[in-house]
Design a binder for these strands. Structure first.
Lengths: 333, 333
DNA sequence: CACTCCAATGCTCATTTGAGCGACTCAACG
DNA sequence: CGTTGAGTCGCTCAAATGAGCATTGGAGTG
């Protein structure tokens, strides 16, 4: 079309100031004062068709600007666009202004907490893994419908975090008033044998089985890069390379997946205590929490594979998700 | 009620993030993508009534923001509001950003020139007095419909201005291609006798008579204060006081008027060579050019008395005109 | 348990609006 | 002088929309 700015439309005369103001007056009456076109037409002694055409012209000329605003730190326009683009069930984009990481994380957590409260209904089963973002959410959970809360992963000892998956599940259960399914085990063990032995423990085994009953989960998304994933960071150099070689771009609750969002099988996962890829895929509603443009690739892959159905992201990540080839990707319902 | 930030409506539940985003999605589809409510309803599997109610809620919650923008340095929204408030025939508000006086004057002149070109039709008779703002306009007149141009006032010797009413009329006539009615005489004389003698001169007399045939005029508006009016500044201290005492708040083309916009008769006007108050009132379409909030009083008075029918003002003056008791004032058609 | 209240939902009917079409104006051109 | 073509205007008819009303579904209450 036209490169905006000054280029004129072919066959369209540039409006003089008077016509411009008349058009603006009509636009004002219609859009701002909510009067009907018929009414305006009678006022001005012109036909309603003329009014309609003036309004069309006003919109074409960019004279009327309509925008979807921000409320409660949510960028609703971006949320709506992401919802459409990726066919999401729920979505919230937090308006990460000039905030530093911890602030963004806090805002993300708060928003996710409110969204979760909206989305859950009594009787649902909520699954929660260890994840920094999920922890941030759990800390801000206020009241939740009565649901059973299921621990999806083992506990990870992390410098700077004294909370574990168990604490996350407990806060959620407290907010909900429902029962909690909890087990005590580390997220990652030294080798597959130790992990297998632990999985054989009845508490752990029944705890992990519960993952199959989960209807809703809130999870973090890790990108397969240093500092972008708890799991990547506990992997050995060898494992990092090997998984990357298998096409792994990210992980959710310790389940690594490739660019198509398909879970990737690798011996490394054998030494993790967490739900299986199949179990993850079986959860009806998975709400992914993530922030930072760098995670766009991992998030998009997870969306493509249908691993996640809803998003809570910051504005930077949202922009990157929309920016690249987003439009081409749509997840099946 | 609740005291948190934005008061809630009684009986209206605060929306959670999910509902907020759903609403935003609907708003986006309707307002930004222009889809019909029926269409959206079918998409989402809800009734069209639900969609309509969501859209209402979105607007009430301030989630959808509609604004009338700026184009070509015109504040169209303000122009439209002034048009409504004062029942103007034409109006343009120039968006005086952070500009200094000369820049505002230049922008005002340019806008007035374009507006005049819009408003005039072949066969009209255009009257122009001396005025700084009218000069600024005349200098920017490009092409005008073919009209006769009539000089309304004598010429004023002013420091810093080598152009006079004659020059103004000549530029306009050149832009129009029409004939010019010109006479050579000073705007102000020492005393009434000298002025009377001059008015007796046939050239001057016939020149002034032409004012009666004028259909359209562009004029400046002076406020009755130091530096706010060419005429005030050539008045003697005695005259200034006396006219102020008579209630004069401003002048147009040397015709002083009171707060009701009624021309005020005073011996001072006898020593001016300009059109009469009756002649001014007889002009069908008078476009007033003015800028600066300080002139609001004079402009409003002129509007109230029907001395002017159209405005070209800067944003500051527009805001002041709207701000005060503007809403109460409406000029008869 | 019956009852009321309240909000949410979907319906009907009248009005408003959009799409497309023919009539008109004006100006360039054969 | 008629023709042609572009642009504008107002009309018709069908679709979209708004206002008001009845129904539904709970939550709270006696």
């Amino acid at each position: 079309m036209d490169a905006s700015g000054h280029a004129e439309q072919p066959g369209r005369t540039r409006l003089g100031p008077d016509e411009l103001v008349r058009t603006a007056t009509v636009a004002r009456h219609h859009y701002l004062l909510g009067r009907s076109k018929v009414e305006i037409a009678e006022d001005l002694g012109i036909s309603r068709f003329k009014v309609a055409r003036m309004l069309d012209a006003a919109r074409e000329a960019g004279l009327v600007r309509i925008s979807i605003g921000q409320v409660d730190g949510l960028d609703l326009d971006a949320s709506a666009r992401l919802t459409d683009t990726f066919g999401l069930r729920h979505c919230a984009v937090v308006a990460s202004g000039a905030g530093a990481d911890p602030e963004v994380l806090a805002a993300l957590g708060g928003t996710a907490a409110r969204l979760l409260a909206d989305v859950l209904a009594p009787g649902d089963v909520l699954g929660l893994p260890w994840s920094r973002a999920v922890l941030a959410m759990a800390q801000r959970l206020d009241r939740l419908p009565r649901v059973r809360v299921v621990q999806l992963t083992g506990a990870l000892e992390q410098p700077g975090h004294d909370a574990t998956a168990v604490d996350i599940v407990r806060s959620a259960a407290r907010a909900s008033g429902g029962p909690a399914s909890i087990f005590h085990a580390p997220f990652a063990l030294e080798d597959a044998e130790a992990a297998a032995a632990l999985r054989a423990d009845r508490t752990v085994a029944t705890g992990l089985e519960q993952a199959g009953t989960v209807t809703h989960a809130a999870v973090g998304v890790g990108a397969w890069a240093a500092g972008m994933s708890t799991i990547h960071d506990v992997a050995t150099a060898e494992e990092r390379r090997r998984l990357a070689g298998l096409g792994v771009v990210g992980e959710i609750a310790g389940v690594p997946f490739d660019a198509d969002g398909q879970p990737v099988r690798d011996p490394m996962t054998d030494r993790l205590i967490t739900l299986s890829g199949e179990q993850l895929q079986g959860i009806g509603e998975v709400m992914a929490l993530a922030y930072g443009a760098a995670k766009a690739g991992a998030v998009r892959a997870a969306l493509r594979g249908g691993l996640v159905t809803s998003l809570v992201v910051d504005a930077a990540l949202a922009a990157r998700l929309e920016g690249d080839d987003g439009a081409a990707v749509t997840v099946p319902r």
